[in-house]
Design a protein around this nucleic acid. Sequence first.
DNA 1: GCAATAGTTATCGTATACGATTTCGTACTC
DNA 2: GAGTACGAAATCGTATACGATAACTATTGC
Lengths: 222, 222
Amino acid sequence: MTGTAVESAAAQSKSQQAYTAVKARIVEGIYTPGYRLVLAKIAEDLGFSVVPVREAIRRLEAEGLVKFERNVGATVSGIDPTEYLYTMQTLSIVEGAATALSAPLIDSVAIARARAVNEEMRECLEHFDPVRFTALNQDFHSVLFEHCPNPHILDLVHRGWNRLASLRSSTFRFVPGRAQESVQEHEALLQLIESGADADTIEHAARRHRAATLDAYLATTN
Amino acid sequence: MTGTAVESAAAQSKSQQAYTAVKARIVEGIYTPGYRLVLAKIAEDLGFSVVPVREAIRRLEAEGLVKFERNVGATVSGIDPTEYLYTMQTLSIVEGAATALSAPLIDSVAIARARAVNEEMRECLEHFDPVRFTALNQDFHSVLFEHCPNPHILDLVHRGWNRLASLRSSTFRFVPGRAQESVQEHEALLQLIESGADADTIEHAARRHRAATLDAYLATTN
DNA sequence: GCAATAGTTATCGTATACGATTTCGTACTC
DNA sequence: GAGTACGAAATCGTATACGATAACTATTGC
């Protein structure tokens, strides 16, 4: 459904299934931030006992998608402005690095694909649909950083995106003016990569691109 | 002992205790890389059942300290050269950023403390003790990045250090020549921070400092 | 009428138990 | 003598059960 890895659920451990299922519900926005994750209920929904569910929740906790309080329970991590700031800042750093490391490995086919996505985004500007726009935005950036040869960094990027995913409907809703600039910066980024710019330049551009979105958001709240 | 948070183990959940205990054993090098973590045995050692231990292992897995294979078991994550490279590269990025963000918040007292540590390191060069040197190295850098106002980034730095901790005895053992340069770069870094250099400069210097250690290591293996 | 407290309910935390899977050793066959 | 197949031991995965904790509610005293 979404771009997340789909696994043949058959031979998977229930713990893993629970992890995937709950994560999907969070990312898809079915479990909204603040939502109370009652172990017994989730277990019943999925049709197995609470033990695998607990492990799944623990993993999600380590990833920062859920908050856990002893003897109280788990809730979907909120997106309070402070958290948003932290996450965006972190993402600006790791995604910038990932993009720079990835750049030399991006072939012309991938560039073309990214450009096509960006074109869709441009069209999307007319009759603005924040949800669709944000989805395309993720697609675009995925093309740029997915070739990152360092799996650790790539993992950090994915985790950052996941944390933002729960509010993806609102990212650009809150800063619609940012969307247009974003499309332009995407093209600039593509040209940098095409021209074989050095890693520092690309990293800086990618980081600034995201930091600018954060700044735009901050400007609206003040 | 180290800077890690010490909690009153009394009112802690067993799951948490298990997490802390196993993590400590890994970081302290009691469980060496490749060590097989048998759930039942750990549970017995700690005096409780396997369930909390499982959760603890799951969390450690999410942090990358242990590897988990379905129906086979958990082992302490190895430090094969490739992993080392990935971890160091990631750390160079996040620690660089953390240090830069932290810099404006470092007061003269902290600078003095860092300088004292670095002085110890310099003395340590005479009768070289890799373990002690590496421990001091962590102390030094901790002073520099611990003020980082973004907890996410700080967390990533800690995780990186933890992954390296298991081989801390060997870090500088493998590249003894690097130790001397390292001390000098530390002083340069301190001066940059004292002089209120801009964030980019500090970030770049901090990143280079770590990347240089990685390069030195790579040079020995080729 | 309001506040504090006691009782109730919902939910979590952990132990025990058992079935499932893998791995290792041994015996058998070619 | 080497390779393969069978079986046993070890270990993991999950379910169920029960005790512990915290949130909620109702009642009582002021």
